[in-house]
């Protein structure tokens, strides 16, 4: 499948993957992430239940401490 990941085109050798699987495959190592699929927020506990499919737009935003 071909998706848009953080505004870039990405191809995966699978029909569909969960948000959590994509995070692992792409090695997003930051501890704190916010994920949005097609503009809708996907909460931490939903990431292994929500599937990403061809043509989807996934955003993985990392957050670091300080304020």
């Amino acid at each position: 499948m071909k998706i848009t990941l953080n505004h870039r085109e990405e191809t995966f050798d699978a029909e569909t993957l969960t948000v959590a699987e994509i995070i692992r495959l792409k090695k997003f190592t930051f501890r704190m992430l916010v994920t949005k699929l097609n503009g809708q927020v996907i909460k931490v506990d939903e990431r292994d239940k929500v599937y990403v499919k061809d043509g989807d737009n996934l955003e993985v935003i990392h957050l670091i401490s300080g304020g």
Partner: peptide
């Protein structure tokens, strides 16, 4: 200050008010 609080707030706000402007900061 803490990243986990930032994440919690952003998730909560975006799921309750998807269209309301939300302004966060990270990396300072």
């Amino acid at each position: 200050d803490k990243a986990e609080m930032k994440q919690m707030l952003i998730e909560t706000a975006l799921s309750h008010w998807p269209d309301r402007p939300l302004i966060a900061a990270s990396g300072l």
